Simulated scan of single mutants.
Amino acid sequence: MARAWLLAILLFCSTVQAAPAVRYCDYPVYPPISWSDGTHVRGLAPRVVEAVFARLGLGLETVVLGNWKRCLMDAAQGRVDVVLAYRTPERENDLVFAEVPVLREEVAVFYNRRRPLQVERLEDLRRYRGGLLFGESYGEAFDREVARAGNFEWVSDSQQNFGKLVRGRIDFIPYERRTGRLYIEHLAGGSDIAELPITLAVDHLRLAVSRRSPLAARMAEIDRELQRLADSGEIERWLAQSEAAYRDMIAQPEPRP
């Protein structure tokens, strides 16, 4: 009998260990939402995702790819289970979005003070050269304007994009207002970067599951856990902690040889 019990326990442990983890794809260039300390992905997004699936009894594997578009493509093909993204009609073909948002965000226009812009509405940006990251979307109206105007240069990295703005190679960057402000605080030449008072779009960052993932059938549970985190104030606390942690990391002096 003891041998039978031992065998059952070993089989149970083997089954638990073999259970696949949730594959979460992140492109950590959006502090305080997600960023890298050189070793780990940190920020509000990975913390929320980990908390939600821990409550569902699932582990988490974080996947970092070369750009944000790759994350979306892998989610569409089912190679990863989860991303955090804005909801658009095109993305809904491949992703199921949570109804409870993680965060409300405003999209601002960042520009170089040395090259002022005359912009009062979205269409006015056609006169200028903009920069975007591969895969970025800021709402249906913005995406239509980008496709119509054709005045954007696409890159993989925020540092490259803001560097081009500092050097005058592009005229503006559409970017989340909170993230942009935090990013330019310690950017070389960041004192030349300002933001226009207009808001291009207001959207909500949402947890999204690949339609090819088994997790797509558990969206009600996912929404329940997201609502719990929002109601408890955890999301706001984690956001503030991530901002502070990012500032601390950037402010650290370079290690001496």
Results as ranks from 00 to 15, higher is better:
1 M>D: 14
2 A>T: 12
6 L>I: 15
6 L>G: 01
6 L>T: 14
6 L>E: 15
7 L>I: 15
8 A>C: 13
8 A>L: 15
9 I>H: 08
9 I>T: 12
11 L>E: 02
12 F>P: 00
12 F>D: 07
14 S>G: 15
15 T>N: 07
16 V>Y: 08
24 Y>C: 06
25 C>Q: 03
26 D>G: 03
28 P>V: 03
29 V>S: 08
30 Y>I: 06
34 S>Q: 09
35 W>F: 15
35 W>S: 12
41 V>H: 06
41 V>Q: 04
44 L>A: 09
45 A>I: 14
46 P>A: 10
46 P>Y: 08
47 R>G: 14
48 V>L: 03
49 V>G: 01
50 E>P: 00
53 F>K: 01
53 F>L: 03
61 E>A: 14
61 E>L: 11
63 V>L: 02
67 N>L: 02
68 W>C: 02
70 R>T: 10
70 R>F: 09
72 L>R: 05
74 D>V: 04
78 G>V: 08
80 V>R: 01
80 V>F: 02
82 V>F: 03
85 A>D: 14
87 R>H: 01
88 T>G: 04
89 P>H: 12
90 E>P: 00
90 E>Q: 13
92 E>C: 04
93 N>G: 06
96 V>R: 11
96 V>I: 14
97 F>N: 05
103 L>V: 10
105 E>L: 11
108 A>R: 11
110 F>T: 07
111 Y>H: 07
113 R>Y: 01
114 R>Q: 13
114 R>S: 13
116 P>T: 05
117 L>D: 00
130 G>F: 03
134 F>V: 05
134 F>A: 10
135 G>L: 04
135 G>C: 01
141 A>T: 11
142 F>M: 09
142 F>R: 07
143 D>Y: 08
146 V>W: 00
151 N>K: 15
154 W>G: 05
155 V>L: 11
155 V>K: 12
156 S>A: 15
157 D>C: 05
158 S>D: 11
163 G>N: 08
163 G>L: 09
169 R>G: 03
170 I>S: 00
170 I>M: 03
174 P>E: 07
174 P>T: 09
179 T>I: 07
181 R>D: 04
182 L>P: 01
184 I>Q: 03
185 E>S: 11
187 L>Y: 06
187 L>R: 10
188 A>V: 10
190 G>M: 06
191 S>N: 14
191 S>M: 10
192 D>W: 09
195 E>Y: 11
196 L>M: 15
200 L>E: 04
201 A>K: 04
201 A>W: 08
202 V>E: 15
206 R>K: 13
207 L>S: 00
212 R>C: 04
212 R>H: 13
214 P>K: 14
214 P>N: 13
214 P>Q: 10
215 L>K: 04
216 A>M: 10
219 M>N: 09
219 M>G: 04
223 D>L: 06
224 R>A: 14
227 Q>W: 09
227 Q>L: 14
227 Q>N: 13
231 D>C: 02
231 D>A: 15
235 I>A: 01
235 I>M: 10
238 W>P: 05
241 Q>P: 00
242 S>Q: 04
242 S>E: 05
243 E>G: 06
245 A>M: 08
245 A>T: 05
246 Y>N: 03
248 D>Y: 12
249 M>I: 01
252 Q>W: 05
253 P>Y: 10
254 E>R: 15
